[in-house]
Design a protein around this nucleic acid. Structure first.
Length: 792
RNA sequence: GCGGGCGUGGCGAAACCUGGUCAGACGCGCCGGUCUCAAAAACCGGUGUCCUAACGGACAUGUGGGUUCAAAUCCCACCGCCCGCACCA
């Protein structure tokens, strides 16, 4: 019988579906639960119009291998799937091509779901959720209300990117070189009232990574998050503007250089400018303030204007001119700095551009000079001394500043989760009561923003009685950032049908935190950080029993084409359909994992697929040959059996401990090579069973079929093989004999010999004798059962 | 500038975690063979570099140094490449 992948794959996919093979029910409260349970999760996909690309195939196949190996090793594994279904691409497609974002999204979901099913992944489809359905976003809204209640969601004015031509807010992704990608107009900043999550309230804890037991995150991911949070310790110091009887605080990490401050700078957006600066400074600030920080930073030359005011240095009473300049950022520190041109590169550039004085206060040995009583101190001691002196006078204190900003999640778009808030002239900001959730996303005709969010044009939807006073009120026309949806999907996954709460505490206590999370490193400062924030907050609300969502984290490498990451705009996207059509799912799955280490970037090429196809055919042919020619089953000793046991040990260790997915395939290839050379050996049947069993997580369809050929059934439930330790031991070993660390001979000797006997063997070697030249060894090193090194 | 990572054949890579078996498993490609009228497929064999007719030998894991009886593997420095952040005071 020939190997026909498509027929086999259809057949087994149907069998698994009929058997509900990968569905895992939730534990029932009060009943004893299985001890070893595992939550296997890969980042949920966005339902793109192009279907899956190879990165998805890699990602989910890896998760699938882990799922199968864990399941068959006695773990209860939950492995759900869902859709990050809101978001801009579908809305833009609707504007461009007509249709409704929902229809577009659901069509895409259907396509990808079918691809996933064709790939035969062991997904518990009963748990499928999609963020755009009312029974999901109802709970997104409910959670938002909890954050609002706890004052972790709040409104404030903040600048957004605004395209003056299209009259719309635009996302960073759609800005190219400071211009609107669509129309080319220069993007401006415009202040709007927006919703924020108070992520900064958790800044210190987000730095901690107190992972659950067995948890491990890549060092680089933690480094990126730490860098993003950007904690720096310094001091806040008050400078007085005597004329105005006003204190203006600055943040500095270099209080030791305070005596070197020669001028003072505030950011263009600093309230000081509008209130106290001269006209020239005000007009400079207005212009600068309308430009995006990225554009401001792109300019190398320093610009700024003197405000006409002077601030007094609290340590020496010197009057420093107050400037406004766009190199000072409003949203870091206090938005004002003391400028020390002698010891700060940016301040120096500015001082040189505007001929401001430069005073050295740190000498070449790093000691303070020109600093009154502090001369001679090290920088650290100087800073400490200066700050404590100021503290006594009430003019300064130690403080910490963060780079992390609160998370702005208002989006002036249609295709997202409505914000369950109404605005009442009498009552102000009023949350929609829980029993009125969900606030349904209404059907509208036109998604194009015209100076206001699309929902704002829907008068019937916007007008709503105030939940508090019953008077006329209006809804919030914005929707939520899709990262809100994905900040808790992994919690909903474990209790997806719950219709009286977002999730049940008993169920989440059982499954969560996620044991193994797999996804792209590009989500480090977005989704991964937001999810950690959500979990910490929900824990503080008493809704969850843990504080970190993901115990182990793994990032797959990029599948690239032409040296760059696949992307639609570059047109270098490859999906699985061609390979699925030509060679089937098993070949696709094996091939994507065989390409190289899953954690490293790889260049997509089909050039190696032949090797995988040959391997599968050879497995097919060999198993059939073994069934015909090998004696009855039962023999588990011999050369092939030893190799089989070694392969079991290797595959298991690689997948479970090392998270390596390509080397196990090599190992099974080796086993198969030896097996195909002796298909009639007494232990051939055991070797064949082992090869089929070990390849099952990678190629479940053909493995299942061959398992049947070998006379068994339900391989997906078959216990994962365990290496027979007694078979791993060898009676003889190859003794390596080195002279001065170079291999000069090797010989087969009995295992377990004492050192002196090994030395005797080594010295008896003629080849070794030739290198010894009759001299006496200075030293002899023996590694039992391995080698003898003779040093002369 | 700050932070993280990677350098091994023609190519993807293995061995690095846990120092020890002439480094290069497994696969691609290439070369040769079997089969065929021929080709493809399939199967078998070869394939780091250099010297040699051969036997055999020398060299070889980005560069330099260190630790060690022994280094691709551990440590340090440098070079090259990649990624993240960045006028963050």
């Amino acid at each position: 019988m020939d190997y026909e992948p498509h027929a086999i794959e259809r057949k087994w996919q149907q069998v698994w579906a009929d058997a509900d093979a990968f569905h895992v029910p939730n534990p029932v409260s009060g009943e004893p639960a299985p001890e070893r349970h595992w939550y296997q999760l890969e980042m949920l996909p966005y339902p793109s119009a192009n279907g899956m690309h190879m990165g998805h195939v890699l990602n989910y196949t890896m998760g699938d291998v882990v799922t199968h190996v864990r399941r068959r090793s006695g773990w209860t594994v939950v492995r759900p799937m869902g859709w990050d279904a809101f978001g801009l691409p579908a809305e833009n497609a609707a504007i461009r091509e007509g249709g409704h974002p929902r229809e577009i999204t659901e069509r895409n979901i259907k396509t990808i779901r079918e691809q996933m099913k064709r790939l035969g992944w062991a997904i518990d489809w009963d748990r499928e959720v999609s963020s755009h359905t009312p029974d999901y976003y109802r709970w997104t809204q409910w959670l938002f209300l909890k954050f609002f209640e706890h004052e972790l969601a709040y409104r404030k004015e903040a600048p957004v990117n605004w395209c003056p031509n299209d009259q719309t807010v635009i996302a960073n992704e759609y800005i190219v070189d400071g211009h609107c990608e669509r129309c080319g107009a220069l993007v401006e900043l415009r202040n709007m009232t927006q919703w924020f999550f108070k992520t900064t309230a958790y800044a210190d804890e987000l730095l901690e990574f107190e992972l659950p037991e067995g948890g491990e995150w890549p060092e680089r991911t933690k480094a990126i998050q730490r860098n993003w949070i950007g904690r720096s310790e310094g001091a806040e110091i008050l400078f007085r503007v005597d004329e105005l009887d006003l204190d203006v605080p600055v943040f500095t990490t270099r209080a030791d250089t305070l005596f070197g401050a020669t001028f003072f700078v505030v950011a263009p957006e600093h309230p000081f400018v509008e209130a106290h600066a001269n006209e020239e400074a005000k007009s400079y600030a207005r212009l600068a303030g309308a430009r995006r920080a990225e554009d401001r930073a792109a300019e190398t030359a320093k610009t700024g204007v003197f405000t006409g005011q002077y601030a007094t240095n609290p340590v020496n009473g010197e009057k420093l001119p107050v400037w406004v300049a766009d190199y000072v950022l409003m949203d870091y520190g206090t938005g004002a700095i003391m400028a020390v041109p002698a010891h700060d590169e940016r301040d120096r550039e500015f001082a040189e551009a505007f001929s401001l004085p430069i005073v050295d206060v740190i000498d070449d040995d790093g000691k303070l000079v020109n600093s009154n009583g502090f001369d001679g101190l090290t920088a650290m001691d100087g800073a400490r001394g200066i700050v404590s002196m100021l503290e006594e006078k009430g003019r300064g204190k130690l403080t910490v500043s963060y780079r992390l900003r609160d998370w702005s999640f208002s989006r002036q778009r249609y295709w997202g989760c409505p914000i369950p808030i109404v605005y009442c002239d009498k009552c102000g900001v009023v949350p929609v009561p829980e029993d009125q959730l969900p606030v349904l996303l209404p059907e509208i005709e036109d998604y194009a923003p015209k100076g206001k969010p699309p929902l704002a044009s829907n008068e019937a939807w916007m007008r709503v009685p105030c939940p508090k006073c019953g008077g006329e009120a209006r809804r919030d026309p914005d929707t939520m950032d899709t990262f809100v949806d994905s900040s808790w999907y992994f919690i909903r996954y474990v209790d997806p049908h719950n219709d009286h709460a977002p999730f049940d505490r008993f169920v989440t206590d059982y499954w969560l935190p996620v044991n193994q999370y797999i996804g792209g490193i590009d989500h480090t400062t977005g989704h991964l950080l937001y999810s950690r924030f959500f979990v910490k907050a929900l824990n503080d609300f008493g809704m969850l029993g843990f504080r970190e969502p993901f115990a182990r984290l793994f990032h797959q490498g990029w599948v690239q084409m032409g040296g760059t990451k696949m992307s639609k705009t570059k047109g270098n996207v490859a999906g699985p359909d061609d390979i699925l059509g030509e060679y089937g799912a098993d070949a696709m799955r094996l091939y994507i994992l065989f390409m190289g280490p899953a954690g490293e970037d790889m260049e997509w090429t089909e050039s190696g697929i032949d090797g995988i196809v040959r391997f599968v055919r050879r497995l097919w042919r060999t198993v059939h040959e073994v069934v015909e020619r090998a004696p009855a089953p039962g023999v588990r000793e011999g050369t092939l059996a030893r190799k089989a046991n070694e392969t079991i040990a290797k595959v298991t260790d690689d997948v479970v401990r090392r998270f390596r997915f390509h080397t196990p395939i090599s190992a099974v290839m080796e086993l198969l090579k030896e097996l195909s050379a002796a298909p009639d050996a007494p232990d051939a049947r055991f070797a064949a069973e082992t090869a089929v069993s070990l390849i099952q997580p990678y190629a479940p369809h053909v493995a299942e079929e061959l398992w049947g050929v070998l006379g068994h059934e339900r391989l997906w439930e078959e216990p994962w093989p365990v290496a027979d330790e007694s078979q791993l031991r060898r009676d003889t070993i190859e003794l390596v004999v080195q002279v001065n660390g170079k291999v000069r001979d090797r010989m087969t000797v009995a295992a377990g010999l004492p050192e002196d006997e090994l030395i005797a063997f080594a010295r008896a070697s003629e080849r070794v004798a030739a290198y010894l030249n009759g001299g006496e060894p200075r030293n002899v090193i023996v590694v039992p059962d391995k080698l003898v090194n003779i040093v002369v």
